[in-house]
Simulated scan of single mutants.
Amino acid sequence: MTPRTLKTLLVVSLVVNVFLLGSIAGGAYRWFANERAVAAEQRGLRFAASELSDERQRQLREALRDTRRDAQPLIRAARDGRRDLVRILSAPQLDRDALDAALASTREADSALRAQIESTVAGFAATLTPDERLKLVDAMERRGPLRAAIPPQKK
């Protein structure tokens, strides 16, 4: 190889390495920034119990896990209903009766699932002390399903 060829390869290699390092650094920055944003925005029932003791949090997670396990047929029915909705709505001819039936079955499965989850949370709340229930309600208003129900306070 001539010295000119070696210099060209060296420059190309340097450019590729700088590009790769920049890509890795940019990807790492976005990943870590997203991790912090996700941690700050954790919402849902299991995160609403974050102010309770570790034992109480574990009890709620287990109760929700058991409910989810028991409700697998409902979850599947709702998922299948949504797939049917996509299939019906993307068909060349809209079958309104099939659409209404798919909407009704999906709504029924979603409602039954929600009722099971609400019953689980109510059963869990019944085991809490009044102080623990206040902590749970406060956290549910900030991070859980009650966050949209309470209008923000004006200061």
Rank of each mutant, 00 (worst) to 15 (best):
A126K: 08
R96C: 01
L21P: 02
V121I: 13
A125N: 13
Q72P: 07
I117Q: 06
P152M: 00
E35I: 00
Q93T: 09
S23K: 11
K155C: 08
L99E: 03
R107Y: 09
G123L: 05
I150N: 09
Q153D: 11
E132I: 01
A77P: 06
V137I: 14
A28H: 13
L85D: 03
E132P: 01
L136T: 03
R87A: 01
S111V: 08
V12P: 13
V137S: 08
A126E: 09
R133H: 12
R79T: 08
R147T: 07
K7S: 05
L103W: 04
G22P: 03
D95L: 00
F32S: 07
Q153S: 10
Q93I: 09
V18N: 11
S105N: 05
S13H: 01
E51P: 00
A49R: 08
I88Q: 04
R114I: 00
A112V: 00
L10R: 07
A104W: 04
T67L: 05
T129N: 14
L64K: 10
L64R: 05
A63V: 03
T106L: 06
L10H: 09
L52V: 14
I117V: 14
G22Q: 01
D95C: 01
E108T: 11
G44Q: 12
A49W: 02
R79Y: 10
L89F: 10
L9H: 09
E141M: 15
R36C: 04
S105M: 01
T2I: 04
A77V: 00
D70C: 10
G123E: 02
F47K: 12
E62Y: 12
P73W: 05
L103M: 12
R4P: 01
Q153Y: 13
A112K: 12
D70N: 11
E35F: 03
M1S: 05
Q116N: 15
R4N: 06
L21D: 02
L45I: 08
G22H: 03
R58V: 01
T120A: 15
F19V: 02
E41G: 06
R36I: 07
D54W: 11
T127M: 07
I24G: 13
